[in-house]
């Protein structure tokens, strides 16, 4: 359950993640906007309510982990990590600048708080499965969260890992699909449809919950439900809107990577 005050706070954090993401890409001049802001609500819930982490000790062995397998959405993760206290806000504005520690795709060796490198799609998801397995081998109580893209789920490696995690009953693993229905060349249905996505995950031995990926109450309830599931990993199919919350990006395939500057950022923030 989630209190009204907590909900208000988490919605505010989601908004902050979107604004900071918008700003960071505006400073860089272009970047992966649409699929970053579509996961802002999930990131808010994870980093500001659910995950047991210590920003002052990013490599704390018993921390909960998040693998952003859709590594191109790194900007939103960096925004969340910065807001959570892993590094100062000024660092955010170095995104993709020469010599930065914040590259467009997530790099665990450069970004404090990033639990795995990702960018070549589906690899992060396998690594998340490995982390969950390590937790079982070591009888640790930490949880592993991972976010995959719907387009990313066209990769065969996703299903190799899904089969293994299902067969090994990794109930310390909770995955989200950022189901915004779009990829670089069009909608996922136009390019290579994933449907029925829920049936696919169920048939691979996962507990599947479908929710509105922008409804923090629903997402939180899904995570509560996942905690009660034993012997199965959980997949939360989060129905999202690509570019959510940014007027010039919402619902547009082209929002995958967009070029814009600080004038557009200021205008957009004024609208909010």
């Amino acid at each position: 359950m989630i209190s009204d005050a907590c909900l208000q706070e988490l919605n505010a954090k989601a908004r902050d993640i979107r604004v900071l993401t918008l700003e960071m890409i505006g400073h860089a001049g272009k970047g992966h906007l649409g699929g970053a802001v579509s996961i802002a609500d999930i990131l808010s819930l994870l980093y500001f309510k659910r995950m047991n982490v210590k920003p002052e000790e990013p490599r704390w062995a018993d921390r909960d982990r998040l693998v952003l397998s859709k590594g191109h959405a790194g900007t939103a993760l960096y925004a969340a990590l910065s807001l959570r206290g892993y590094f100062p806000r000024e660092v955010c504005y170095t995104l993709n600048q020469n010599g930065t520690t914040l590259p467009s795709h997530v790099d665990m060796r450069k970004v404090p708080g990033a639990d795995m490198t990702a960018g070549s799609l589906a690899q992060g998801f396998s690594a998340a499965v490995g982390m969950a397995l390590a937790g079982k081998v070591d009888s640790k109580s930490y949880k592993v969260y991972t976010i995959v893209g719907d387009g990313e789920s066209q990769e065969g490696q996703i299903w190799e890992a899904a089969m293994f995690a299902g067969n090994h009953g990794l109930d310390n693993l909770v995955a989200f699909t950022d189901w915004n229905g779009m990829q670089i060349d069009g909608t996922t249905d136009e390019v290579n449809s994933l449907n029925p996505l829920d049936g696919k995950w169920e048939s691979f031995g996962w507990h599947v919950i479908t929710v509105d990926g922008h409804d923090i109450v629903a997402l939180d309830a899904a995570l509560d439900e996942a905690e009660t599931v034993k012997g199965k990993p959980t997949m939360i199919l989060a129905k999202t809107l690509k570019g959510k919350g940014i007027s010039f990006a919402e619902g547009k395939v082209s929002s995958h990577s967009m070029a814009y500057g600080l004038d557009e950022v200021a205008a957009e923030i004024a609208k909010m």
């Binding site: 639990d115 690594a127 499965v129 390590a134 490696q157 293994f164």
Partner: peptide
């Protein structure tokens, strides 16, 4: 990938 996840957790 699973090996990488295990290694990141100290295995």
């Amino acid at each position: 990938g699973v090996a990488a996840g295990l290694a990141s957790c100290g295995k």
